[in-house]
Nucleic acid binder design. Structure first.
Lengths: 367, 367
DNA sequence: CTGAAAGCGCTTACAG
DNA sequence: CTGAAAGCGCTTACAG
């Protein structure tokens, strides 16, 4: 009887058109070793250390059988029985590999990959849309992230409602970047934009500037607000009132010669600029007025460029610790997973790294 | 009774200390909709088109139940049961997001993501090592790619033995780039390096050059061989024998002033260079000899840089159609999946795009 | 057209 | 110390 089962279990099956031997299973091993399947599992998983004890002889027989059959446990079955699938999701509302901004997610992904490898998880990138227009977490009202044990979310175009729902549901996730929702807190790993901005503004003020302008785009999400807060802190602490520390919301095409000339005429000597592309535009327009940084005016950039190609090598700026953020996000997610949900939402704030560069100098007309 | 089962199935369980609803299963859906679990599976998998017919009303009830419960099929269970999980694997032997070569995989990934979205698959990046030293497909003898319905493989450091085994096993996969194995053929999507190289060499010859040198590194895999074949074809067809069409295997640090001077002295006027980094090195060394392209000598580069930062904007080169390769690889994989393994391995060869640039000119001393 | 049941290959209480 | 059994969440013949 044992023989029949054994013979059967090694029968051939069809996988598409290619015929392949069926892989031996735990049952095959158990049968050959003359033990029950559970024992095989116990031995394989080394659970023999606890209170469970299995005789040396039995262990040896099982080990021999495993070797003889070339048995390897099926990872899929293990996942099913174990309740976890060791899949970490990665979700973005926009393309994860955008054409335009090749540097946008890349640094995060480096960190995510490294840490996933350390934590021994595979990564699941949610690209399926299942017919929906754009990417959404809840497809037909269903949380598609369920596919993975937990998920990392990042990027632009976040739907706060979905985040809140995810949170309520208790689905384990970590956002890369600060994101606030109504009625609660989510777990995130963010850069300390506020502090970094405060520092860079103080650096600028210490160079002698007394009349600054913050230039941001029209987007006003958490990062922009944090930067603005840092700017306000630093200027206020140094006795610059609102008329000496202006704030302008300008898209690139609104940065014109007229506008810039007006600011120069007002006596603005230093610009704190949201991003590299705006800085480039600013520098170009200033050049039309015959002004160049740092001799004729100064500017500092708040964070990394979205696109490596547009980097300004000698800019006064700070580096967002993107790789570190990616890695920490994975680590935090794993902690949440390990805690099995026992944990309250947690926020991790990472420092940015100041780059002195060479676009902030002393003002040409000290106040 | 139905009510009791339903109540039970939605019972709260402890997932750590935060009480979260247990993920609903097919049984929950079936119970709520008042059908048997098999029906739910049938509807979800759209197997209603075949001979199986299920009433509109029933379908609607099931769909409603799915929505109400937020049910998502467990991909692991699906795999085990022998179905599909709409996961496409992506496997590389080295880091998928390398620090050094930010442009290496990126373009492929753009194409892969786009096409995966079109084909409605999620992407599974294999980062788990399960204790192995480096990434391998067969972990403890088991094919870890099994987790996905099929996989895209790409990049350096390929283990041919593993590819062959994968092929024998009948596991559905497509390689990005030409890869040959013993005793068989695998499916791949490759760039037509041979043809592109032939064309660029002919372009160079047509400019008047009669004495060329091919400069490749020590790596000699399929791409390098294809390029060399193209070089040999073009030079032979134009009557340049081996002494007029040299081949050198040089790593960057072996490109020295002495060596280059020797070639110049020999009368070599044009260099066909494997990659951008070697071209940069060559140009720098030539500059030390007071020579500049295209006035004093010419060079052409065979393919895209691995790193966007090192791009030479005006180089005579050709573009590898990487995005297209990624997309086509996914498409081919989907075809294989649809055919259910009934298909023979298929190879797709995509043309490269010539970029005239400005580093190949007429020779300064026409032969 | 729909339901009941077996089975995928494991893990893990639960009995003895 | 070891075995028999239930269960993980699906899919897929097989009956009705």
């Amino acid at each position: 009887m044992g023989f029949i089962i054994y013979a059967l279990s090694l029968s051939i099956f069809i996988y598409g058109a290619v015929r392949m031997k069926r892989r031996p299973t735990q049952l095959d091993v158990a049968t050959l070793a003359g033990v029950s399947p559970g024992i095989v599992s116990t031995i394989i998983n080394n659970r023999t250390n606890g209170n469970i004890r299995i005789s040396e002889a039995t262990q040896q027989r099982v080990l021999d059988a495993i070797k003889e059959l070339g048995y390897v446990p099926n990872p899929v079955a293990r996942s099913l029985a174990g309740g976890q699938n060791r899949l970490l999701g990665v979700f973005t509302y926009e393309a994860l590999f955008p054409l335009e901004y090749r540097n946008f997610y890349y640094e995060f992904l480096i960190g995510i990959e490294k840490e996933a490898e350390i934590q021994d998880y595979n990564l699941l990138f949610f690209t399926r849309r299942q017919g929906t227009q754009k990417r959404v977490i809840y497809q037909n009202g269903v949380n598609s992230l369920q596919l993975a044990d937990g998920a990392i979310l990042l990027g632009l175009g976040t739907d706060r409602e979905e985040l809140a729902r995810l949170n309520n549901e208790g689905y384990p996730f970590v956002f890369i970047g600060r994101r606030e929702i109504k009625n609660g807190q989510i777990s995130y790993v963010a850069a300390d934009y506020k502090r970094a901005t405060r520092e860079i503004v103080e650096y600028t003020i210490n160079k002698g500037h007394r009349r600054l302008a913050l230039v941001q785009g029209s987007l006003r999400a958490e990062p922009q607000l944090d930067k603005q807060a840092g700017y306000c802190d630093a200027t206020a602490l140094n006795g610059l009132n609102e008329s000496l520390a202006e704030i302008h919301y300008k898209e690139n095409d609104q940065i014109t010669v007229e506008w810039l000339k007006m600011l120069f005429d007002k006596g603005v000597t230093a610009f704190i600029v949201e991003s590299t592309s705006e800085a480039k535009r600013l520098a170009a327009v200033a050049a039309q007025l015959g002004k160049h940084a740092p001799a004729d005016f100064s500017y500092a950039i708040l964070g990394d460029p979205m696109n490596l190609e547009e980097i300004i090598p000698d800019a006064t700026t700070y580096r967002t610790p993107r790789q570190e953020m990616g890695a920490q996000a994975v680590r935090l997610l794993c902690e949440i997973l390990t805690a099995g949900g026992e944990i309250e939402p947690r926020q991790v704030i990472l420092p940015c790294h100041f780059q002195p560069g060479n676009t902030v100098g002393a003002p040409s007309h000290p106040a």
